[in-house]
Design a protein around this nucleic acid. Structure first.
Lengths: 207, 207
DNA sequence: GTCTATAAGATGATAGAC
DNA sequence: GTCTATCATCTTATAGAC
């Protein structure tokens, strides 16, 4: 890949994650890449397509980086611990902010929507695979919809990032509360047969 | 309040929620309000301040509309049912989309950040009050941080809206998974003394 | 592939008439 | 309070020289 393309991709991702989508004009990105503004359109057609390509690259790199770590997870509490670490690292790298901007921009731009969907799908697939493995013999697997839960977790990371940006203290409180909720899941998980019976009964009741 | 101000407030809220913050220029809002563009600046100073005022009005109206409904809630499952209804109604009214746009815009604009914080604070206060009342005698109240949990729930609504915009099927799956998780909370809640003991033990273990 | 120059238009905001 | 007119600035995108 040409040097210019690489510089633009990196500059696009950095501009969106640090200054937001609204500030990510062709000129702003090109300036950060120290490249002529017209090259954005020569190489990528439109600004949105450049941002999409940049997002795909970031997601591919990040998921790759965590693949073997995910593979080594065997228990629910290990997964929660890795989730904490991953959230912190990806946040610091600006990748969560990038996804959040894509999600909001994607509400009214089909190219950005495609980028947001792709990013969510990549992370969701990883999370779902680990959840399925870790909860294979748990009573929770019968009751929880792991595909949906994986997606809710990915969405939760993005939601927390947005809250963090406007109310840091609130985001910290929310994250702490969710970790307490994780504890609750572990409790039911540890209940084994008792928990399984209680869950099934509840489920029958509800239908 | 003058007719023009009211028309601008309504038009601003509608423009942001249907077309997004990026399309909410002074001209676009004024056109929807059928009012001269210069009046945006005469009445509100800047576009961001108009959007903030519009958001505050919407939030005040919505919270007021649900106040007595919230007050009538006595059980956890009633609360979950009202949450479903509220989410659906507020979504349809565009108020969740409005909040989502404020959150993402607020990442880099202090005025929008203030509006987003205010909206979150209003809803969080309502949710927390109900949670505290409903879980007063539950083993969950000891373990969960209700203030943080209320904030996480508000953030979750916004996150779901963003996912819905880029991947409707995924959002539906995520919501269904979260309702299953709510079931799980109910199970522990119903366990009474047994659940309380298990939760406390788990909490001790973790520290 | 890269550059300059420029078209064609939108934007926030203001001055000043009424 | 409301209007018109306007400024200065920004935007995407392209044409054409090198």
């Amino acid at each position: 890949m040409s040097d210019t393309r690489a510089k633009l991709l990196d500059a696009a991702a950095r501009t969106v994650s640090t200054d937001g989508l609204a500030a990510a004009s062709a000129r702003a990105i090109a300036a950060r890449a120290q490249v002529n503004q017209a090259l954005v359109f020569y190489h990528f057609g439109t600004v949105a397509e450049l941002v999409e390509a940049a997002s795909r690259q970031r997601v591919a790199d990040s998921v790759e980086h965590y693949r073997e770590r995910f593979g080594a997870i065997t228990t629910l509490s290990e997964l929660l611990a890795l989730g904490r670490e991953l959230h912190e690292r990806e946040r610091a790298a600006g990748n969560v902010a990038l996804m959040a901007q894509l999600m909001s921009g994607g509400q009214h731009d089909p190219v950005l929507a495609r980028a947001a969907r792709h990013a969510m799908d990549c992370w969701t697939a990883e999370v779902q695979a680990v959840l399925t493995r870790v909860l294979a013999s748990s009573p929770l697997a019968d009751v929880l919809d792991l595909a949906g839960l994986a997606r809710a977790i990915t969405a939760g990371f993005i939601g927390l990032e947005l809250v963090e940006g406007v109310d840091p203290a609130g985001a910290t409180a929310a994250l702490a509360a969710l970790e307490r909720l994780g504890l609750l899941v572990e409790v039911v998980n540890d209940l084994g047969a008792v928990g399984r019976r209680a869950l099934r009964a509840k489920l029958r009741n509800r239908r």
